[in-house]
Design a protein around this nucleic acid. Structure first.
Length: 650
RNA sequence: GCUGUUGUAGCUCAGGGGUAGAGCACUUCCUUGGUAAGGAAGAGGUCUCGGGUUCAAAUCCCGAUAACAGCUCCA
């Protein structure tokens, strides 16, 4: 007998060799149907693997990441089996579960090139195989056996993987005719996988290395019920509707032009309005936090970047140097603002009493991103950072970090960004030579970041090896409409530039000391931030950011004068307005995509003109009735104030 | 940068070796003056660009370019 401890602390006895599935059956029929995998002493196991010792057990269903993971991983194997049957000679790379769904990297044999059209046939085959209810069987093998088996079948990628594995810890999983090198865990059998959608086909380098061969990666997703797949498809469609590239075009916020160049966005009037408001909001916020606004030029002598070291590291991959009539004189487009701010720091001797010094700049920079990397406004070649550099003494780092976290919190709160994650990026402890700066400084800075985050109640995931080469950092990530993660706010410690620029301050001891520099950008860049903002709101911005808050619609041209009059009164009150005097049917205007995003619509006609009123319609929230213009102004101000309250009372 | 897909009217897209199509939007007119109406007429395109094959290319082939998806990258 073995003692099984459950998450609630209760303990039951079972025959030795009992499986997760048996345990689920002993609890309830329903649970036995829903359970997908089981945690045994913290390790995720197959439901059919026998438990021979006392153990702590947790049953995983679709609601657990681990359950979904086993489900999708099994789906990947099912797909591999289908591919093997349809395309004999296919070599298999790896096929894991991912955040939503799974993929398998394959190399189809016989020079076959798969296209989107083939996916349907694969799906069909998968459904067929799922119907035949094949069991996933776990088999322990020795390294030699595994190597023999896969070498014989010419599975070169699998052989490469096995070579890196430790003997004695190698397992196969088999279902039907397909055998895969795999750690598991898997579902009991293929019949669990009821609804399947293969979503896309793309190239992916073997082991993620650009120098390796490119394999064909097939992405898919699967569910235990057809209905869940349908719901997922609807969700994806809704996400596509919120895509910032689509909304940005519809709302006329920004554009790209082939004539201007790849990755160089142009802000249309309404987008500029929106961006200006975000900038002035941050400007005010930074002023309160004792930042000093500065401005630096767009081109710079290459020597500055040789001093900073960026030219050596990134020069080849940048927009190339600009020459002048003067022999040997070279400039480049500014890829970052930091070196300029360092020069400003050096403008005069600094005392410890001045520190921290905080230079802020909305600095437009140009970086030659690889062409395949460009993506809407989130990844561009010319963008404006809401940049600032804080120069401080080492023991001020933590405090400065906390103040920057405050600013980021205020911004996220004002814009209703709730589901962000924070990541602390530290250096890779096994690869210290990749980084510059002393061990002592790194440790001090890493500790300061972790403590600052903790003291601010910020939950973070700590990732080793993700630090910049010059210092550790704290990043804020937000997801876009289809779940891709983007980094927005960032705070980074830098020991490199103060060193290279020989920055110093005079301490209380009358000695020269080196300051520490902190880079920070709460938005990241105006471009990326606006993109994410659009995807969060679907273009329905908070009132204080809406490019136009009020549209005035005269019902016929007889009332154009009155409408103009209303407009003037509103404009005197700071409310942003737009007049739509096309004098068409109102119903037709309301369908207008452009007007859909404006929160208030004022309809004026005979009744309104005679009583000096307006009929107020709030988009998406129906009719608010007729009221005087003063009353309307109060209404709008109240709503805007309500939103701004969150900011200023924070 | 790599692999793949795509580029036709303002937008969404169909078509396809013989000089160009739909829906929505747009313009004018009619009907209806009041909260997602209906009708008529009209205007809009070097079919991304360059080269080749052909009697003939928007269509087939090659190259460039841009967008999209994924990989790699992101100071």
């Amino acid at each position: 007998m073995v003692k099984i401890t459950f998450p609630d602390g209760s303990i039951r006895e079972y025959e030795s060799g009992v499986t997760g599935l048996d345990i689920a059956k002993s609890i309830s029929h329903k649970l036995a149907k829903e359970v997908l995998a089981v945690s045994v002493n913290g390790e995720t196991w197959d439901l059919t693997r026998g438990i021979a010792t006392d153990a702590t057990v947790k049953l995983y269903t679709w609601d657990d990441e681990e359950g979904k993971h086993a489900f999708w991983h099994s789906s990947a194997h099912l797909m591999a089996e289908a591919l093997q049957e349809l395309y004999p000679g296919t070599k298999f790379g790896i096929g894991p579960a991912i955040e939503s769904g799974f993929y398998y990297d394959i190399e189809p044999g016989n020079d076959i090139v798969l296209t989107d059209k083939d996916l349907e046939a694969v799906e069909k085959k998968m459904v067929e195989l799922s119907g035949s209810r094949q069991e996933y069987q776990r088999v322990d093998v020795s390294k030699k056996e595994a190597l023999d088996y896969f070498s014989k079948r010419n599975e070169t990628y699998k052989v490469e993987l096995i070579n890196d594995l430790e003997d004695g810890k190698i397992t196969y999983y088999q279902q039907g005719t397909f055998t895969d090198l795999c750690r598991g865990p898997h579902l009991p059998d293929t019949s669990y996988i009821k609804a399947i959608k293969l979503t896309s086909l793309a190239g992916a380098y073997w082991r993620g290395n650009e120098k390796n061969k490119m394999l064909t990666r097939i992405y898919g997703i699967a569910f235990p019920k057809q209905k869940m797949l349908e719901e997922w498809l609807v969700l994806m469609e809704e996400a596509r509707q919120r895509d910032h590239r689509k909304v940005g075009k519809e709302m006329e916020l920004f554009m790209f032009s082939q004539a201007v160049g790849q990755g160089l966005p142009m802000w249309l009037p309404k987008g500029t309005m929106l961006r200006d408001r975000l900038e002035s909001f941050l400007r005010k916020l930074q002023k309160k936090h004792d930042y000093q606004q500065v401005i630096t030029p767009h081109i710079t002598n290459v020597n500055l970047y040789k001093t900073s070291g960026h030219f050596q590291k990134y020069g080849k991959d940048s927009f190339q140097v600009i020459t002048t009539p003067q022999e040997g004189e070279e400039f480049m487009l500014k890829p970052m603002n930091c070196p300029h701010h360092c020069e400003m720091y050096k403008f005069k001797p600094r005392s410890y009493k001045e520190l921290p010094i905080r230079f802020a700049e909305f600095g437009t920079v140009y970086r030659y991103e690889q062409s395949g990397e460009l993506h809407g406004l989130t990844r561009v070649r010319g963008f404006t950072q809401d940049d600032a550099h804080l120069f401080c003494m080492p023991d001020q780092i933590k405090d400065e970090f906390k103040k920057v976290i405050d600013i980021i919190f205020i911004i996220f709160k004002a814009l209703d960004f709730n589901d962000f994650t924070a990541q602390v990026s530290l250096r890779d402890p096994n690869n210290k030579e990749k980084y510059i700066g002393s061990d002592e400084n790194w440790e001090k800075a890493e500790r300061a970041i972790i403590e600052a985050a903790e003291e601010k109640g910020l939950k973070t995931n700590v990732v080793l090896g993700e630090a910049a080469f010059y210092g550790p950092k704290l990043d804020f990530m937000v997801k876009d409409a289809i779940g891709r993660k983007w980094q927005l706010g960032t705070i980074q410690v830098d020991y490199n530039l103060p060193e290279r620029f020989e920055l110093e301050y005079t301490g209380a001891d009358n000695q020269k000391h080196r300051p520490v520099m902190i880079h920070r950008a709460p938005f990241g860049s105006m471009e990326r931030f606006v993109a994410v903002l659009i995807e969060h709101t679907g273009g329905k911005f908070p009132l204080w950011l809406t490019p136009e808050q009020v549209v005035v619609l005269p019902i016929s041209e007889k009332f154009n004068d009155y409408a103009q009059n209303v407009l003037n009164l509103l404009n005197n009150s700071d409310i942003r307005t737009v007049l739509d005097d096309r004098n068409e049917k109102i119903g037709r205007k309301i369908r207008d995509n452009e007007l859909k995003k404006i929160p208030f619509m004022l309809v004026v006609g005979e009744n309104e003109a005679s009583q000096q009123q307006v009929s107020v319609r709030r988009q998406g929230r129906g009719d608010a009735g007729s009221m005087s213009i003063d009353e309307f102004i109060k209404l709008v101000n109240k709503e805007v104030d309500g939103q701004l309250e969150a900011i200023y009372n924070y």
